[in-house]
Write a protein that binds this DNA or RNA. Structure first.
Lengths: 110, 110
DNA sequence: ACACAATACCTAATTTGCTTAGGTATTTTA
DNA sequence: TAAAATACCTAAGCAAATTAGGTATTGTGT
């Protein structure tokens, strides 16, 4: 996703969070949106994204809806009921991670 | 470090940040300190920590000082000049990661 | 008209950073 | 006196990326 390997492990959370917010999105759109939101700082590579989308679908957290736009196929992903619960868990884990990191790197808070 | 794989990639930053704060520490002490600071939420496993300390030493970011306490060996690690610069970089990357994640998971901020 | 960029999907080999599961040895505690 | 804690270590395996490809269509610049 970057040279930076801090993002390793966060992709599923990012995807599920975006889909929670936007309802449904297709893969390529997700890569554009993340780049836009982070001001170009984070680029989700397709080699990371597509396998992740397939994994989340296989786990039953996402469903797919095919669409044909301009003679080109799009696969819109959206969150299932099961996915909503898992998203809530992942978002909590992310918030916990962030607060733990903040006290770890900021000794004044410890 | 946990079941949670968000921490993947953050161990070097955690170690260097702690050593910046505390001057010098030995491996086992680092595992105790991280667990204490995070209220038991994050446990740095020795299988992850020792190879990381050796890697940081090999890169010239840390130096070692042996000590014998109670007939048992301790290896105290401390940051080199080169390590100070790299620590500053890693801390900046971590802060960037955190702010990017915050806007990604919090659509109201986007 | 034609090349190149952008859109849109995909896979597979490799790398990386951890987990899991061991190992040695001494000191402290129940 | 057995178990837990202290203190170091390594190696096989796993999971999530990176890197480096692939196909095909549409839009853009010259």
């Amino acid at each position: 996703m970057q040279k930076n390997n801090l993002y390793k492990g966060s992709l599923s959370t990012i995807v599920l969070s975006l889909l929670t917010d936007q309802g449904k999105m297709y893969g390529y759109q997700i890569t554009r949106e993340v780049e836009k939101i982070t001001g170009g700082q984070l680029k989700v590579t397709e080699g990371a994204l597509y396998p992740t989308l397939h994994k989340l679908e296989a786990k039953g957290l996402l469903s797919v809806e095919m669409a044909k736009v301009n003679n080109r196929v799009r696969k819109y992903y959206f969150i299932t009921e099961k996915g909503k619960k898992e998203t809530a868990n992942l978002l909590n884990e992310m918030k916990n991670f962030i607060s733990n990191m903040e006290i770890l790197i900021n000794p004044k808070l410890a």
